[in-house]
């Protein structure tokens, strides 16, 4: 169970275009527009936005992890995107965000959902990893940063 497995297959955007929280979330979810894991894409958007209203998922260090649990997906989906210009995400530390990881799980996937969140949080904590992510320019470079980092976790 690796984040990079979920991201392989074109689920990375090296340069997000959106300049609001909502646009960014939509851009990442759109990567799954024709994916068979999606039951109803509009409801997936709503679930993520609703969860964002409870408390921002901007967790500091320039990172946000919009996430949700909903039965409008059949299985876990994840996507990652980078921003050239940091965007306000209502983070607790008030700092704008330039790295965004989307994670949506099915309602009965509580356990795996938490584990994946914890892995992302663990990776974010590693300064070298964040540095490498910021320096990576293309989608495939970003993917290999994730792959390299996850080799450390088993």
């Amino acid at each position: 169970m690796k984040i990079s497995d979920f991201l392989s297959g074109g689920k990375i955007i090296a340069e997000l275009k959106g300049n609001t929280k909502e646009d960014i979330i939509n851009e990442l979810i759109n990567l799954y527009a024709d994916d068979e894991k999606i039951v109803d894409i509009e409801k997936v958007r709503k679930a993520v936005v609703d969860r964002e209203k409870i408390m921002s998922t901007g967790v500091g260090k320039g990172f946000a992890i919009p996430h949700a649990k909903t039965n409008d997906v059949n299985d876990i989906i994840a996507a990652f995107g980078k921003l050239k210009e940091p965007v306000n995400f209502d983070s607790l530390d008030k700092e704008p965000v330039n790295l965004v990881m989307l994670l949506v799980a099915k309602e009965n996937q509580v356990g795996i959902h938490i584990k994946l969140l914890s892995r992302i949080s663990r990776m974010i904590n590693n300064e070298d990893f964040r540095e490498a992510l910021i320096n990576a320019e293309t989608e495939s470079e970003i993917l290999s940063v994730f792959e390299e980092e996850e080799k450390k976790y088993i």
């Binding site: 969860r51 409870i54 408390m55 998922t57 901007g58 967790v59 500091g60 260090k61 992890i65 996430h67 649990k69 983070s91 607790l92 530390d93 309602e107 009965n108 509580v110 356990g111 959902h113 938490i114 969140l117 949080s121 974010i124 904590n125």
Partner: peptide, 21 residues
Amino acid sequence: PIEFSSRNDDDTDLIEFIVPF
């Protein structure tokens, strides 16, 4: 580790929070 199914007729829900840095 935890199984929880929210029912429509009550007010409880299980939500994940990441403790921000």
